[in-house]
Nucleic acid binder design. Structure first.
Lengths: 347, 347
DNA sequence: CTGAAAGCGCTAACAC
DNA sequence: GTGTTAGCGCTTTCAG
């Protein structure tokens, strides 16, 4: 910087002004400085700038694991959104472990370095709400915690699930299995804190119940099938078990796409025709759901919008002086995607 | 830090010594300092440390896109490997675009902030070798560029591909299609620079040719099927086109797993039985290949080892004083994974 | 509009 | 073993 100042024949302060687009610099001076900068191939030292400004220009994204398609696509969207705002993204993987999640939130891993954190918890729940009370700006993603001290970008889990099930009802299905849900859990927004398990599963299960009730169909507990892991193996296993148990069903609502893809696999392996014998719909609209055999209907929960909104909320908090705006919760719109697995072909 | 020093009744330097595990600190003093640190919940400011040391403790990973399964899993592995070494990872997506790749390498995006970069180019090729000549330590991933000025972690493309095809030969297949390959390209390590297109495709195609030659089978150009994009849609389309063209084939070697999964989809949709009528093998061993219907044989190219090796090489370069060790190229071992799509069930 | 100087929090000489 | 001090490269009052 000194060198640039010398070459341009100005002071170091003027160089700084030019770099930071400070308005009151004479055009001629600015030109000279810019020329000197490119001549010397000068690049501002971000560490020093960070030291002064207290900003690094980097935010964190804490997710369970990138190998899970949903989170890979979320990370993809977040990185693009952050780039538009000139931010870098450090990705941390928590493996869904409680300790790793706490560590990530406490910022103890990379102390005072990130400007903010987008946090998608899996193990932390409603009772850990205090852990979010940190000096590090945090925006929460997902449905584990509501009413916390931070901004929150969630999705319309219940109504989106309801729409998915209504779609199955709309094509004449009546014995609709739901996989990935705990039969005993049905906790909604009304009573958080009571169970620790306010989560996507229970909210989506609620949508399932509402859709059936709306159609005057009784919920059959045999059709509510749990799966410990929300992945292909779990989805396949849930279907296999249900068939072994002799449960009759003509549709499957999978609580996420990978469960649904697993279900598709199990049905295919068993020679069950989709959608003729059993219709299948998933949740999330991961890329792959378009390319399965048959292509899988699903619900698009607005991942790109979630990402951009989350980044923007975080940036607001980072730049916030004081006057703390109360925590906000935002839920982007969802969209039903009809594909072959329910007898359509939206795309 | 001053506060800590005051509370502990020592000088700031001693605090620094404790934090940095400088050996010659009296245990009692160390205790007092540690107590003061935890009392004040002191965390070292990484920006300041970075300013002093010229290190940020953060490396970059530049990949085309996280939504591509292979790169998501690679990023997963890299982040884990980096964490073991106490490093954070900023993930950058280049979309496979030349400009974005150049920007990433030049470090112009986040100037002088990353300690090093793991770079997986797609558009840059052999002729861009000069772009890698930067002050920023870089470790190259993949097969676009060989003989550059940086360390390089590659894979045994040719011999792994050869093993895959030999596996198909071993189960009696003779009309083996290869999808994702350019029929005109067959450039190996011997003659880089001549074509810009030294890449995974040509190296794997070479393995294909070698396997067939070894079995005394002539290569049939009709069986070499290109695909612009290495994704499911491309794989499906390649198979459809081949069938429309009336090409006879009893096996498919897909140049990556997503192509293979697409091929599986197209074969399934056409009512062709896998592996009875057509056997399929992929390349990469992404998680999903285990869960397709049928599960897909593939080649595991040692992703975890690639990640750890790359991080360690980069770290060596970052810590390197001068005495520049000449560029190294390392290729982890590969492993053939036999699954249902070739009539086995390794796992 | 531009310059001089202080200081962000830390580490590394070097002295004690 | 421990304290003092000088910067790392930048931004930011405050003068001019």
């Amino acid at each position: 910087m000194h060198d640039v100042a010398r070459v341009a024949g100005v002071s170091i302060k003027t160089v700084s002004n030019v770099i930071n687009d400070y308005p009151h610099v004479r055009p001629a001076t600015r030109e000279r400085v810019l020329a000197a900068i490119s001549e010397l191939d000068y690049r501002p030292n971000l560490a020093a700038r960070g030291l002064r400004s207290g900003r690094s220009g980097v935010i964190g994204l804490a997710v369970p694991a990138l190998r899970e398609n949903y989170f890979a696509e979320l990370a993809d969207a977040v990185i693009r959104a952050a780039e538009r705002r000139g931010l870098g993204v450090v990705v941390e993987q928590t493996s869904g472990e409680r300790d790793a999640e706490l560590l990530s939130v406490s910022g103890a891993s990379r102390p005072r370095f990130l400007d903010g954190l987008l946090f998608s918890p899996v193990s932390l729940g409603q009772s850990d709400i205090d852990a979010l009370q940190t000096p590090l700006p945090i925006v929460l993603l997902g449905e584990r915690i509501f009413g916390g001290p931070t901004d929150h970008v969630a999705m319309h889990n219940t109504s989106a699930a309801q729409a998915a099930v209504e779609h199955l009802l709309g094509i004449g299905r009546r014995r609709i299995a739901i996989i990935g849900a705990d039969p005993d859990a049905d906790v909604g927004l009304d009573s958080p804190g009571e169970h620790t398990e306010v989560n996507s599963a229970s909210l989506r299960l609620r949508g399932y119940r509402q859709a059936l009730e709306g159609a005057g169909i009784e919920v059959d507990a045999d059709l509510i099938r749990p799966s410990e892991h929300w992945n292909r193996a779990g989805g396949a296993q849930a279907v296999e078990r249900m068939r072994e148990a002799g449960v009759d069903f003509d549709a499957v609502f999978a609580l996420n796409d990978t469960l649904g893809l697993g279900a598709l696999r199990a049905l295919g392996a068993a020679g069950v025709s989709v959608p003729d014998d059993v219709a299948v719909i998933g949740f999330d609209n991961i890329d792959e759901s378009r390319y399965s055999v048959p292509s899988m209907s699903t619900v698009d929960t607005g991942r790109d919008e979630i990402a951009q909104t989350a980044v923007d909320l975080l940036l607001e908090r980072i730049n916030e002086k004081d006057s703390p705006v109360p925590p906000r919760t935002i839920k982007p719109d969802f969209r039903l995607i009809r594909r072959e697995s329910t007898g359509f072909h939206d795309d």
